[in-house]
Design a protein around this nucleic acid. Structure first.
Length: 485
RNA sequence: GGCGAGUUGGCGGAGUGGUUACGCAGCGGAUUGCAAAUCCGUGUACAGGAGUUCGAUUCUCCUACUCGCCUCCA
């Protein structure tokens, strides 16, 4: 085991401080991130933790080695909204039992999720466990909690007794008394304390259920992460992540369960801030709700979405705006234009240092801008016959590309960001011909007419001394070129 | 009501106890038939008030405003 030369600093919600990250075992750095409930397409907000922790995963792999990091992200496939869809389908005459219809809905949603997150350039975790695959472990954990006096069965439910755990509320900075005073808790007659939360609940015949010492039922939401993290990552692991809306109650409850059963659980707790859209919370009622798939279908490349997310630090609210989308696309296109076919080398050290400082992705992008600038200048001056002492353009490009790859950017072959590939060769010849003629006659009316029409059709026109280059933009409208014929 | 985060130039967005990144937009110049692209150069900011300090945008407190969570929404 070698000591890594990069020290990663991470903000730990548990201590409310930025700390040097020291893994339990540098040969196997372990991270658990709360994944989606698979009831429907992932909305844009779901993409934020995916991208944030993808960056952390890539950084950890860079620092500790790709074979020395284990990343687990779960799928919650026990959920009433999944059941609802299945019930509706059954009522509409779909084939199969309710169980298979539920499984089908989860399967298709997981498939969508993978497709959408792949499009964002997110690496797949090492394990993507489904809650339904770990019911046995959950039941065993609940039994253990009861045996240790931290949980009790009542009316087919099993509840965690918050009074049995003194530290309850420590992660989110709340006290049980304050929360009860807030009066936002569900009052149920079988609860000893209003804050007690469900570990197990009974299922009726029309709901999925598993046999248990407390009758046929299904697990509460929080226990799955405790059980799966323990099963796949062991008694204690390094990092636990998720959106900051999960801090309470989800993560608070995970800690309570796992700690009371005797697990060390997670050392570092990380939470990303929420996403907004044009300055407002994304919600169906405001009409600004959309999925990752919606954006992709509108022709916004996943890489552009990723770039926009990276431009804001993960602990700050991020606003998704049309303007940012356009800027990101423009920048990425410029960067792609700089690339020749040089192979990536190793990332820039300054770049790594800032990224390792609590994932300062915005600062990391600054370094990419910086490197791109250098590269551009070397390319420019080299092409003008000026010789420089220092790194060659190839070396600069290799470092630039390796750095960009660490952020999951510029990974596509050559491409220019899924721009429609439209052959405008005929128009290039046309314009070129008219221009050569105009050079002699000094009458540029025809050239301007063609150029302006092309511009109106969203074609970028670049004329140099001896060539004409046309590139169709994302709003390319071929019908506008009809006028030229 | 409880808990937490934030307020930086036209916009976005880092960072720092003393010379304030960067991107986009703007402006000037080179280049161009005109443009585009590219190159060179360039201006503007740290919510308000008080305190600590030789000195605060950076630390502390107060005020205002914004936002999030407390509802199995990441």
């Amino acid at each position: 085991m070698t000591t890594p030369k990069t020290t990663i600093k991470l903000y730990n919600t548990k201590t409310r401080r930025k700390e040097d990250f020291v893994p339990i075992d540098a040969d196997n750095v372990r991270m658990y991130v709360c994944g989606p409930t698979v009831y429907d397409r992932a909305h844009l907000g779901n993409a934020r933790p995916v991208i944030v922790f993808d960056i952390l995963y890539r950084l950890l792999r860079h620092v500790y080695g790709p074979d020395h990091v284990t990343y687990v992200r779960n799928f919650t496939d026990v959920d009433d909204r999944i059941n609802e869809t299945a019930q509706k389908r059954k009522a509409a005459g779909a084939e199969g039992t309710l169980e298979t219809l539920i499984a089908d809905r989860a399967d298709e949603t997981i498939d969508w999720y993978h497709q959408d997150m792949d499009a964002l350039g997110a690496l797949r975790p090492d394990h993507a466990p489904r809650a339904t695959g770990f019911i046995g472990q959950m039941v065993a954990m609940i039994e253990d909690l009861i045996a240790k006096g931290h949980a009790y069965a009542a009316e087919g439910h099993v509840l965690f007794a918050v009074d049995s755990y003194k530290e309850y509320g420590a992660l989110s900075g709340r006290s049980v008394d304050d929360m009860i005073a807030g009066a936002r808790v569900e009052v149920a007659p079988y609860k000893r304390n209003p804050m007690d939360f469900v570990l197990w609940k009974p299922s009726t015949d029309d709901l999925p259920g598993w046999d248990s010492p407390w009758g046929r039922g299904r697990p509460g939401w929080h226990i799955e992460c405790s059980a799966m993290a323990h099963e796949l990552l062991g008694e204690a692991f390094d990092i636990h992540g998720g959106g900051n809306d999960l801090t309470f109650p989800h993560h608070e409850n995970e800690i309570a369960q796992s700690t009371c059963v005797g697990h060390g659980f997670a050392n570092v707790w990380m939470h990303n801030e929420m996403l907004q859209v044009e300055g407002k919370k994304m919600s169906k009622s405001l009409g600004n709700f959309f999925t990752v798939r919606d954006l992709l279908e509108q022709g916004v490349p996943g890489e552009v979405i990723r770039f926009v997310f990276l431009s804001t630090h993960y602990r700050k609210p991020m606003d998704w705006t049309e303007k940012k989308r356009a800027e990101a696309e423009k920048t990425l296109r410029k960067w792609y234009d700089l690339l020749t076919d040089v192979e990536p080398s190793t990332p820039d050290e300054n770049f790594i240092a800032d990224l390792a400082d609590d994932l300062n992705s915005s600062k990391a992008l600054y370094w990419l801008h910086h490197m791109a600038d250098d590269l551009k200048q070397y390319q420019y001056w080299t092409s003008h016959g000026v010789e420089y002492v220092g790194p060659t353009p190839e070396e600069l490009e290799a470092t630039f590309l390796a750095s960009a790859h660490l952020l999951g950017l510029l990974w596509q072959p050559t491409d220019n960001l899924s721009l429609p590939i439209i052959d405008l060769g005929a128009w290039e010849k046309e314009l070129s011909k008219a221009r050569s003629l105009a050079m002699q006659t000094k009458d540029f009316t025809e050239v301007d007419r063609i150029k302006n029409t092309l511009l109106e059709a969203d074609v970028e026109v670049q004329m140099s001394k001896d060539s004409v280059k046309l590139t169709a933009g994302s709003a390319f409208d071929p019908s506008k070129l009809e006028a030229l014929k």
